[in-house]
Amino acid sequence: MTSGLVEALVEASSPSWTRRVRAGRDLASFADVPEASETLVGLLLDVGDTAVTRQTAEALVRVGTVAAIRLIALAVAEADDCQADWLQTGVHDALVGLGGVSEVAAACGKLARDPEEAVRRGAADISAWAGVTR
C-alpha cells in the first residue's frame, strides 16, 4: 500500500471531522482498493458530522469511476433520510459546473446491471439526483 493510502485510512477514524473530511477526499482516488472502499462507505455514512458525508460524496463523484459511484450507491441504500439528503447534496455539488453528468450517467448505467440489488437501487437514486433520464 502507498503511504498516502495508509495515512488516509488512519485519518478516517479520527475523532476530528475535519480529518475525516480530508481522509474522504484523499481516499476517493482509491475507490477501487478494497481497504479504501469499505472505509469510504463508512465515511459516506458518517454519524458524527454531515460535512464528512457531503464532501466524501462530492470527492467520489469528481473521481467519476464506476467504482467510486458504486460506493455512493451502496451508501444510499443504507442511508437514513438525513444522510441521503447530504449524499444528494454532495453529488449535486460535484456536478454543478463540472459537466460530469455524462460520466455519472455512464457509471449509473453500468451499475443498473450490478448483481447487488442495493447498488442498483442506489444507482437509480443517483441518476435521478443527476437529472439523468433513461
Score class of each variant (00 low, 15 high):
residue 1 M to N: 15
residue 1 M to S: 15
residue 5 L to S: 11
residue 6 V to N: 15
residue 6 V to F: 10
residue 7 E to Y: 12
residue 14 S to L: 04
residue 15 P to R: 15
residue 16 S to F: 05
residue 20 R to A: 07
residue 22 R to Q: 14
residue 26 D to C: 06
residue 28 A to I: 09
residue 33 V to H: 11
residue 35 E to D: 14
residue 36 A to D: 12
residue 37 S to K: 01
residue 38 E to H: 05
residue 39 T to M: 10
residue 42 G to H: 07
residue 44 L to D: 06
residue 48 G to L: 02
residue 49 D to A: 15
residue 54 R to S: 00
residue 55 Q to C: 05
residue 58 E to K: 14
residue 59 A to E: 02
residue 63 V to N: 03
residue 64 G to F: 07
residue 66 V to F: 10
residue 67 A to K: 04
residue 70 R to K: 09
residue 75 A to K: 08
residue 75 A to N: 08
residue 77 A to P: 00
residue 78 E to V: 01
residue 79 A to F: 04
residue 79 A to P: 10
residue 79 A to V: 08
residue 80 D to S: 06
residue 85 D to W: 00
residue 85 D to R: 09
residue 86 W to M: 04
residue 87 L to W: 02
residue 91 V to L: 00
residue 92 H to V: 07
residue 92 H to C: 02
residue 94 A to K: 12
residue 96 V to Q: 13
residue 98 L to W: 05
residue 99 G to R: 05
residue 100 G to C: 08
residue 101 V to E: 07
residue 101 V to R: 06
residue 103 E to R: 13
residue 103 E to H: 09
residue 105 A to L: 07
residue 105 A to M: 08
residue 106 A to H: 07
residue 106 A to R: 12
residue 115 P to R: 13
residue 115 P to E: 09
residue 116 E to P: 00
residue 118 A to W: 02
residue 118 A to H: 03
residue 119 V to I: 09
residue 120 R to G: 02
residue 122 G to H: 06
residue 122 G to P: 00
residue 122 G to T: 03
residue 123 A to M: 01
residue 128 A to H: 07
residue 129 W to E: 01
residue 130 A to H: 06
residue 130 A to C: 02
residue 131 G to E: 11
residue 132 V to P: 07
residue 134 R to K: 08
